[in-house]
């Protein structure tokens, strides 16, 4: 939801390490990040923040799962073995059995990139394993 970005961010994990010299904060074990309707679950999340400015967030898990309510009320979700969020580019990168779903529409590949501000989505391109599968359900108009 649009309002998600202003909501407080709650992070829970089994343990966490802040490394000031490396400029990283890593959370380990049953990690969950919740911000408004956005929910991310992973085994490990590392936040890179050199000079205290967050530049990227990398989540790994088997799988990493993500879900968020869209403004149109539909539920978007995704999973992959690794998810990277590049803050400056607002780019979400899913690697390894990656899948994005919105309502019933499904997009899967070994590599998916999604620009969160423009909604642009790019998938595949990583050799044979990068095959892309997309399933879109026509929006069935109810009989007038």
């Amino acid at each position: 939801l649009k309002t998600d970005v202003a909501a407080p961010v709650q992070i829970e994990a089994d343990s966490a390490v802040f490394d000031k010299l490396a400029g990283t904060a890593s959370y380990d074990g049953n990690v969950s990040i919740i911000q408004g309707s956005l929910e991310i679950r992973a085994a490990h999340i590392e936040i890179n923040a050199p000079n205290n400015e967050i530049i990227s967030i990398i989540a790994t898990g088997t799988p990493v799962s993500l879900k968020q309510k869209m403004d149109n009320g539909k539920l978007a979700s995704g999973k992959a073995r690794e998810m990277q969020y590049l803050v400056k580019e607002k780019r979400l990168i899913l690697n390894g059995d990656a899948e994005l779903l919105q309502d019933q529409d499904r997009f899967s590949s070994n590599h998916i990139e999604y620009l969160t501000d423009t909604g642009q989505l790019k998938a595949g391109g990583k050799g044979k394993a990068g095959r892309v599968s997309a399933v879109f359900y026509p929006t069935n108009k109810t009989a007038e």
Binding site: V5, A6, A7, P8, V9, Q10, I11, E12, A13, D14, S15, A16, V17, F18, D19, K20, L21, Y27, Q35
Partner: peptide, 26 residues
């Protein structure tokens, strides 16, 4: 908040040992 904390001062490293729960206001 967490249960257990280890701060290694020479390495500028802070470890929250378990039950980590954090909230950040945006």
């Amino acid at each position: 908040q967490s249960t257990g904390l280890t701060a290694k001062l020479d390495d500028n490293l802070l470890r929250f040992d378990s039950n980590v729960r954090s909230t950040y206001q945006v």
